Measured scan of single mutants.
Amino acid sequence: HNLTITQGKLFFHYNPKLCLSEIHKMEEVSGTKGRQERNDIALKTNGDQASCENELLKFSYIRTSFDKILLRWEPYWPPDFRDLLGFMLFYKEAPYQNVTEFDGQDACGSNSWTVVDIDPPLRSNDPKSQNHPGWLMRGLKPWTQYAIFVKTLVTFSDERRTYGAKSDIIYVQTDATNPSVPLDPISVSNSSSQIILKWKPPSDPNGNITHYLVFWERQAEDSELFELDYCLKGLKLPSRTWSPPFESEDSQKHNQSEYEDSAGECCSCPKTDSQILKELEESSFRKTFEDYLHNVVFVPRKTSSGTGAEDPRPSRKRRSLGDVGNVTVAVPTVAAFPNTSSTSVPTSPEEHRPFEKVVNKESLVISGLRHFTGYRIELQACNQDTPEERCSVAAYVSARTMPEAKADDIVGPVTHEIFENNVVHLMWQEPKEPNGLIVLYEVSYRRYGDEELHLCVSRKHFALERGCRLRGLSPGNYSVRIRATSLAGNGSWTEPTYFYVTDYLDVPSNIA
Rank of each mutant, 00 (worst) to 15 (best):
A330R: 11
H461P: 06
N255I: 13
E265I: 12
G374I: 04
T494M: 15
T272Q: 06
P403D: 02
S262E: 03
L426V: 15
L455D: 15
V424R: 03
F462I: 06
Y498Q: 14
P312I: 15
F337R: 08
V297D: 02
G234C: 08
S257F: 10
G467P: 01
G476E: 01
L277R: 13
H371W: 05
P434N: 05
A381G: 04
I410Q: 08
P354S: 06
N477A: 11
G207I: 00
H416I: 10
S274T: 10
F499M: 15
E281V: 08
V297G: 03
V334Y: 09
A395R: 05
K302W: 10
Y498R: 12
K432F: 07
S251G: 05
S474Q: 14
I410R: 05
A336L: 10
E433V: 12
Y500Q: 06
A335P: 13
E465L: 11
S363F: 04
P354Q: 11
W428F: 07
C267E: 01
E442C: 03
A407S: 09
D291T: 02
T485M: 14
L232N: 15
P354A: 15
S320D: 11
G207E: 00
G476K: 00
Q380N: 11
A394W: 12
K357N: 13
F372Y: 09
L364M: 14
D385I: 07
H461S: 10
G472N: 13
E356P: 15
S223M: 08
P245D: 06
R319G: 12
G374Q: 08
Y445P: 02
S284P: 02
S239H: 10
L437M: 14
T333Q: 05
E265V: 09
A395T: 09
V365S: 08
D229H: 07
N208P: 12
D291E: 03
L228D: 15
S283V: 10
S458T: 09
A381M: 00
T288S: 04
L280I: 15
L237Q: 04
Y498F: 11
S486G: 04
K271S: 02
C267G: 02
E260H: 12
I276R: 05
T401K: 00
L321M: 12
Y445F: 03
V214K: 00
F499C: 14
K287P: 03
S262F: 14
K236G: 05
V299R: 13
H352N: 15
S444V: 15
N255L: 04
Q429Y: 15
C269R: 04
E247Q: 11
G449C: 11
N477C: 06
R218L: 10
K287D: 02
Q219D: 06
E290I: 02
H425L: 09
R319L: 06
K236C: 06
T415F: 09
